[in-house]
Design a protein around this nucleic acid. Sequence first.
DNA 1: TATTGTTATACTCTATAACTATA
DNA 2: TATAGTTATAGAGTATAACAATA
Lengths: 145, 145
Amino acid sequence: MSQARPTSPGTLAGELRVGANRLVRKLRHQRGQADLPEHQFVVLTALNKFGPMTPGALADLEGVRPPSMTRTVNALVEHGFVSKLANDQDKRQITVQLTPQGRNEIKETRRRRDAWLTKQLGSLSPEDRQTLAQASELLKRIAGH
Amino acid sequence: MSQARPTSPGTLAGELRVGANRLVRKLRHQRGQADLPEHQFVVLTALNKFGPMTPGALADLEGVRPPSMTRTVNALVEHGFVSKLANDQDKRQITVQLTPQGRNEIKETRRRRDAWLTKQLGSLSPEDRQTLAQASELLKRIAGH
DNA sequence: TATTGTTATACTCTATAACTATA
DNA sequence: TATAGTTATAGAGTATAACAATA
């Protein structure tokens, strides 16, 4: 990859938005039937990274509304990947925590679901992968997490 | 941004997927009410870039099924941003083309909708923007367009 | 009164299956 | 028979509004 001229923020915004949207769409299309939907999977990874959290905190973290997170968490409970724990200090709140099956699902799902993207990335040069690794961090920083 | 060790394709896949998904979700959240939905807007930009196309070609290009593209195109027709043109050689086909309003909408929408992302990008270093510019191209290449 | 989480409901975007018209 | 586009229908994910329980 070479890009001679510096890119203005405005022009870059359009390019980046299109690129990110296309990748996300393609990933959704490549995803196997057995995989958890992305929004469920990222909740597992959030719990894995930050530890047990309330549904409200998860909603804030993932940028969705509380009712949406309620549905996501309930789906994960039905799968047995998380459990809800009552909070004795504040009985309005509950804590969502990973189950052992949830931890295992993270490991297995990552292995399965990234197969296509891994293959694509493997065909790139180390330099391009380095670029994308840096970009991944930038994307997360931009998105405010 | 610095990233000392080379990143394996498998690890990078997970990082990139999360980063791209978070940005897309954030963009959706930041988008103004007046903006066209992304899937409609990208059709306008495709027509702007490649010229008039059939709905089927647009569906292939954007990675969606024909019925989905039918709905997207119909929404754009109702907005007056594209028009359908009969094909006399093959009466099964139609051609979708931009209207002058459609061309204007691209210009205006880009200015409006990328404001937030442009602002975020403006706070990055020129080096980071360069990284993201290269990454944008890589994302599109990976997504197969 | 304010906050946490949930339920009820609806909207958007997507898909598959079946249909129409044409090749 | 096959193809291009559409219609009918359903599923997934999201939202807002209203509600219950608790602080």
